[in-house]
């Protein structure tokens, strides 16, 4: 489903990702962990099509297509979704309006009929119920004045409405209380199927208690320095990153971060 090969990305001449290899098959859930500044969000944003990154080498295939030349909206229409680490506010635009515009845009792109306001309301109410969110969220401006946790839930609501083939969640669990964590887990688990894949970026093992990953990868210094089963996350939780065989790379990253 997703095939990343030797991906090198830099920002303003500074290399951030230094040769990423990663494959996700349909039905799989992978987690990416790693120290702050190691390039996790960079990878997520590059996959979603954010401009301004220099992709100096490598390739990404998604559902058999070359992903990198596609603008973000075409990736979204092809079923790729990114839950942002820092969701944006869109003043004056009701959440419901964005959700419906986005859903209908994607349906149109797939040659499906648009969904009218009434059917949409019914559809979205189900999703709200699933996530334990109040209907008033629909009528508030997108993320405006939302608490940190509410913004994260709102990302999950968007994901639930758009039902992506590949969902990338960038630290959606950060800053959540324990109930909200359950909500996010429920949202993600309800999407799990053998046609979809999920890539979770997280710092915490506790999310993985609720969403069991097939694989766990450690990203450090722009490289995947370790991959393993769910047990790897537990190990990281207990020991931190420094123990890794490739501790040198980690140390090097830390040094690079420190120097201007």
């Amino acid at each position: 489903m997703l095939e990343i090969r030797n991906l090198h990305v830099s920002i303003a001449g500074k290399p951030i990702l230094k040769g990423i290899d990663l494959s996700l098959r349909p039905g799989e859930v992978h987690a990416i962990m790693g120290p702050n500044g190691s390039g996790k969000s960079t990878l997520a944003q590059v996959l979603a099509g954010r401009e301004g990154y220099e992709i100096s080498a490598g390739s990404v295939r998604y559902l058999g297509r070359d992903l990198l030349p596609l603008p973000p909206e075409e990736r979204a229409r092809a079923g790729l979704f990114l839950a942002f680490q820092y969701p944006l506010e869109i003043p004056g635009v009701a959440n419901a309006q964005l959700l419906r515009t986005a859903l209908n845009g994607q349906r149109r792109a797939r040659g499906e009929a648009e969904i009218d306001a009434f059917d949409f309301l019914e559809f979205v109410q189900d999703k709200l119920a699933l996530l334990g969110m109040d209907e008033s969220f629909l009528y508030r401006a997108v993320n405006e004045g939302f608490s940190g946790g509410e913004k994260k839930r709102n990302e999950i609501l968007q994901m639930a409405v758009l039902a992506p083939r590949l969902a990338i969640l960038d630290e959606t669990d950060s800053g959540l209380d324990i109930d909200a964590l359950h909500v996010v887990a429920r949202g993600v688990n309800s999407l799990r199927s053998n046609e979809r894949a999920i890539l979770l970026v997280t710092h915490y093992q506790r999310l993985l208690n609720f969403i069991e990953p097939d694989r766990v990868h450690v990203l450090a210094g722009g490289r995947i320095v370790r991959s393993g089963g769910p047990g790897l996350a537990l190990e990281l939780e207990a020991k931190g990153y420094a123990w890794l065989a490739d501790a040198q790379t980690v140390a090097q990253t830390v040094a690079e971060e420190a120097s201007p």
Binding site: A48, G49, R50, E51, G52, P71, P72, E73, R75, A76, R77, F81, L82, F84, P87, L88, I90, L98, T101, A102, G105, Q106, A109, Q158, L162
Partner: peptide, 14 residues
């Protein structure tokens, strides 16, 4: 750019 990218990543054209 951030706002635009956010909306485009939901499938809206520029």
């Amino acid at each position: 750019e951030d706002q635009l990218f956010y909306l485009r990543s939901r499938g809206l054209g520029e």
